[in-house]
Structures are given as C-alpha cells and as structure tokens.
C-alpha cells in the first residue's frame, strides 16, 4: 500500500512534531522498564553486602571504554541532528553511520568482556549479582542493537534527503540508550 501521511499525522495541536512526541512517549515507557531492573538491582545490592565480593570481578577499564564509546556516539548523533537542521542530509547520514560504528564498537567490547567473564566461570546463574549484571547489561545491549538497525534505515533516507526530522528522533532514542549506560556503569562497575 502506498505509504501516505494521514492528516492526523500532520496536525500538531500541542506544537510538538507528532513523530517526536511519539519518541518521547516511547522513552517514558523505556524509563520504567529500565527503572524496574535498576530498582530491583539496587535494593538487592544494598541488602546483600556479599555482592561487593562478586563485583570486584567486573572490568572497570572495559566499562569506562564503553562509556567513552557511547558518549562519543552520542556526540555524532547530535552532530547528525545538527546537520539535519541545516538541511544537509548527506552529512547527517555520515554522522549517523559514525554512530552506528560506535554501537558496533560498544557491542564488540561487550562481547569481549562477557567472553572473558564466562571463561572465568561467571555466568548468569552463578549468583544474584551476575544474574542482574547480565540481565541489565543484556537488555541495554539489545537496545543498542535495535538503535543501530533503526539508524541504518534513517541514514539511508537521510542520505537521499528524505525524512530529515527522523534524524533528531532516532538521536533522542540514542541519547536515552547512552543515559541508561551512564547509570549502569557506576552501578555495575565502579561500586565495589
């Protein structure tokens, strides 16, 4: 079916572009998903002093590197948005590709890190800490993968100069993924 834009989509009674409003609501629903994991983790962590013994095995260096990777990919995402604002779709697409590269780099570090930990015998069913460690980071990593796939589609359209408003919207989602990691990093790596 020919994709068409319904009149409902073009209206903006609130003054916020419709697609952007939808992304904000998506983020609201994501906050409570991650909020549920993190709140559950936090109350267990505070109630289980022995988890500090398990947490020393996480590798702060890789976690910090991944934080840097995500922060930098957030920078390229916002630069893509800036390019889209100026109407330069090709430049926006290039910055989005850089962001996708950041996502891939993040996943590579993650894979390396998990590989090492599993080799050492720390698997999700080892104990409560590792269960939360893999679950929380795993849900986050799945968001990274989804974000990278969506950005690929947006970059393709942006390169052709179409749907430039989507660059900002996917960027919002990406910054949120970055934000989650900003909190996961101290919770899983630094607090020892």
């Amino acid at each position: 079916m020919a994709a068409f834009r319904p009149i409902a989509n073009t209206r903006s009674a609130t003054g916020i572009p419709t697609a952007k409003l939808a992304v904000w609501w998506l983020l609201v629903s994501e906050i409570v998903i991650f909020g549920g994991v993190l709140a559950s983790y936090l109350m267990h962590r505070l109630g289980h002093p022995e988890w500090a013994n398990y947490a020393v095995h996480t590798q702060t260096a890789i976690g910090a590197t991944n934080t840097l990777v995500l922060l930098s990919s957030s920078l390229t995402a916002v630069l893509a948005h800036q390019a889209a604002q100026t109407g330069d779709g090709k430049k926006a697409a290039k910055f989005l590709l850089a962001t996708i590269a950041g996502a891939c780099l993040f996943l590579c570090f993650k894979a390396y890190e998990w590989h090492g930990e599993i080799e050492e015998g720390f698997v999700p069913w080892t104990n409560g800490f590792w269960a939360f460690y893999y679950t929380a980071a795993g849900i986050h990593a799945s968001h990274v993968i989804v974000g990278a796939i969506i950005m690929a589609f947006v970059a393709k359209d942006a390169y052709a100069g179409r749907d430039l408003h989507r660059v900002e919207n996917v960027g919002l989602y990406w910054h949120f993924v970055d934000l989650v990691w900003i909190f996961l990093f101290p919770l899983l790596y630094i607090a020892k």
Binding site: A2, A3, F4, R5, P6, I7, N9, T10, T18, A19, A22, V23, L26, I150, R162, D163, L164, H165, R166, N169, V170, Y173
Partner: peptide, 12 residues
Amino acid sequence: MSVAHDHDHGAH
C-alpha cells in the same frame, strides 16, 4: 516511530 514518507505530501 515515524511511519510516513515525507515526500508524499498530498496526504490522500
């Protein structure tokens, strides 16, 4: 997220 194509402005 956004599902419509921008170039297709003649909505209907």
